[in-house]
Simulated scan of single mutants.
Amino acid sequence: MTGATTMNTVNTVLGPVSADDLGIVAVHEALLSVLPGAQYAFDITIDRAEIFEILSAKLVDFRDRGGKTIVDVTGMFGGRDLPLLEALSRSTGVHIVASTGLGPEKMLGGYFLTPQTNPPTPWPAEKFADLFAREVTDGMVVPRVERRATAGIVATAAAREGMTATEESLFQGAARAAATTGAPVTICFGADAVADLDVLLKESLPADRVVVGGLDRRDAVAAGAPAVVAARGAFVGIDHIGVDDDEHLTDTERAALVAELVKAGHVDRILLSSNAIGVAKGLPERDLPFSYILTDFVGLLTAAGVTEDDVRHILIDNPRDLLTVRR
């Protein structure tokens, strides 16, 4: 057999799809986000039919505004409901890329510590690596039931106050899983974005397989982290677009930051998202439309001097390159 080619693919909840079919991608969102254990609270109701209707309407709006793919970063135990995501993708036509991964430490149970030591110590990085890698290669786990479609990205996070020993092990494991499987990694950094990125890069993971999220935080911008992360070759996650609080830039300031990065030659390293939560249970609401970037933020980008070609590159080409599985 001659002339055979290997198609570049992305793992979605309905199976691998061509990377060229992703279209516009929202790269860091949450469809159903559940605080672990909230489903057992007396005052919280999880009606899956109602949740489906809410999320379906939001995904249809995203699709009708021009979006085609959404990345759900809830990870293993943050509300990821694979049958629900599959049904949503089938009914709306929106590709959904689900994630494996855990973190930060405060969201983990004691299972992920080694109780035979006093005090308990974290799982070694290799155990996290195996856990995450199997979800990329063998399928994501529906607890105590089965494995389903393969994860498209590894997601992890550090504590806002700074990375703990457990989180360092998590980051190392995430990097090793990504290097083994060809999937990318997205991180929410703790106190120091560049130092947290270095934890992954020390595992010999190529920088262009990493997204450092939260780089529209004021402390990160003040430290110059977006430009440093881009110069290292990792992706800069401007991913709280539409969030209006004291901790983050305003949308006008975010647009200026994107324009500055583009002018510095980093258009290939920028990713945009809102960290929107479609349905939250036991967590604060972050009820932004998944289409917010398309309806509101793109206009701010063009007003800041970012060209339409660069906007399309950021919304289409960069996520495609990130999410393509590298075998």
Rank of each mutant, 00 (worst) to 15 (best):
I46K: 05
E86V: 10
T45F: 07
A149V: 01
K58E: 09
T117E: 09
V94D: 07
F62P: 02
E86K: 15
A30I: 02
L22P: 03
L31M: 04
R147A: 08
V136A: 12
H95F: 11
S56K: 15
L31K: 03
D64N: 12
F42L: 13
V73M: 10
D72V: 00
S33L: 15
L102R: 07
V154H: 03
E126L: 04
V97C: 10
S56C: 15
V27L: 14
I54D: 12
W123Q: 00
D61P: 02
F77H: 11
L85I: 00
L102W: 12
E146C: 13
K127G: 05
L88K: 08
R148I: 04
T74V: 13
G79W: 00
E135Y: 10
V145I: 12
D61Y: 02
V97A: 08
A26N: 12
L102C: 12
I24C: 00
R134H: 12
T117R: 15
R147W: 07
A125Q: 06
V97H: 11
F77C: 10
L113C: 07
R148L: 12
N118Q: 12
F52P: 10
G101L: 02
L102Y: 12
A98S: 15
F112E: 07
R63N: 04
R65K: 14
T100Q: 04
R144G: 02
K127M: 13
A98V: 09
V27S: 14
P120E: 06
E86P: 06
D43S: 08
V60C: 04
G67A: 04
K127I: 09
I96P: 10
L108Q: 11
G67M: 04
L131F: 13
E105G: 08
A151S: 07
P143W: 05
T69R: 01
V141N: 07
S99E: 07
A133G: 11
D130E: 14
T117W: 14
K58Q: 14
I70G: 10
R48A: 11
R48G: 00
V27I: 15
Q116P: 01
A129K: 00
